[in-house]
Computed example of a mutant assay.
Amino acid sequence: MNRSEYKDFYDKVGKINGWDFSKLRTTSEGEQWDFLYEVTQRCQKSDVLLDIGTGGGEALLSIADAALLLVGIDHSEGMIQSATKNLKKSNKSNIRFLQMEAEVITFPMSFFNVVSCRHSEFYVNEISKVLANDGIFLTQQVSERDKLNIKEAFGRGQGFGTDEGFLKNKYLTELAEAGFSDIQSFEYDATQYFQTYEDLVFFLKYTPVIPTFGQTDYDFEILQKFIEANQTEKGIKTNTKRFMIMARK
């Protein structure tokens, strides 16, 4: 997928599903942190927080009590529509959702104490512009070798064929060049099990892990062979590989 195709994909997902995977039945072994917990641990009750690539807002709504004001932005109109609906249902009064591009963040300089970004593209110079001095930036991203056995089965996928660590090293370099300090990075490669065939199909349909999944019958033939090869007592086995970066301005 090119960038335009990704945007179209996320917009369609946003209108249909938001970014709510609460009904997806999976278990994991070996995850070393919870990103939302890490974010809340670095928030003061008086802070203003920006969440980049907020999707349907489910994650931000779940940590509403961590800060004075939380603002979620997303480039997708569909995602923001879902986030706005979720906000109305929640009755939270300290959260705002806005459609905005990550590469042009139109807030006042030094407006936010904390900026978070989970599984979404970000631009270091834009973050530096709106983050207050001594503010904290945290991001969790999908590593190139995430869902590796699935990508190998299909011969394509998000980040497939890209050198492992390319994205992490790119972001680390950009943060250092922008003058951020106390830059720390972490990573894990956990085992993940999808409980059923339907859970895995849902995941592949509503994420960009395998671009254009399901548009041909051949995809389902590949999927059936993959499941037969990776079915265990705990479920259909794959991996979840993530990296996290924390930096102070």
Rank of each mutant, 00 (worst) to 15 (best):
E187H: 14
V71G: 02
I73P: 08
N113C: 01
A178R: 07
E77K: 13
T84N: 05
V114E: 00
T162Q: 10
E5W: 06
G53N: 06
L204V: 03
F166V: 14
V114N: 03
K205V: 04
L24V: 00
S62A: 12
Y6T: 04
F21V: 03
V39L: 09
D219L: 01
E58L: 11
G161I: 04
D20G: 11
Y193T: 04
M1I: 06
W33H: 00
M1V: 12
L167D: 08
M246W: 01
K92C: 14
L69P: 02
D47E: 05
P208N: 11
M109Q: 14
R3F: 01
A64N: 15
F202M: 08
L175W: 03
F21D: 05
T26R: 13
E221H: 09
S185M: 12
N169D: 15
R242P: 00
D74G: 00
I210E: 13
V104K: 15
G18K: 09
G159P: 13
S181A: 10
L98M: 13
F160I: 07
D163F: 11
D65M: 13
H119G: 05
N169I: 00
K89D: 12
L61G: 05
L61A: 10
Q184M: 12
R25S: 11
Y37C: 11
Y6A: 07
R145S: 13
L60C: 08
T232P: 12
Y37A: 14
K234H: 10
Q32N: 15
C43P: 02
N125Q: 13
I236K: 05
D51E: 07
N239Y: 04
C117R: 12
K225T: 08
A178D: 10
Q81M: 02
I80W: 01
E177D: 11
M79F: 13
H119E: 06
G161A: 06
K89I: 11
S76I: 02
R118N: 03
A102V: 00
N94L: 03
I210M: 06
A190I: 07
Y6L: 09
V13E: 06
N86P: 07
F107E: 02
V130L: 04
M1C: 10
R145K: 15
Q215A: 08
L200F: 11
F226Y: 15
L148G: 09
I210W: 04
A59V: 04
Q184C: 15
L70Y: 02
K129L: 09
W33L: 05
I63E: 03
F202E: 01
V142K: 10
Q231H: 05
M109S: 13
F213D: 14
G157W: 06
Q99F: 03
N2P: 05
S46H: 06
T84E: 08
I227E: 04
N113G: 06
D74R: 12
N133Q: 14
K85M: 11
N239F: 00
I127H: 06
K241W: 06
T26D: 01
F160W: 14
T139M: 08
S4G: 12
T191V: 08
D189N: 14
K170L: 10
N125E: 15
N86V: 01
E221W: 02
A153G: 05
P211H: 03
F186C: 00
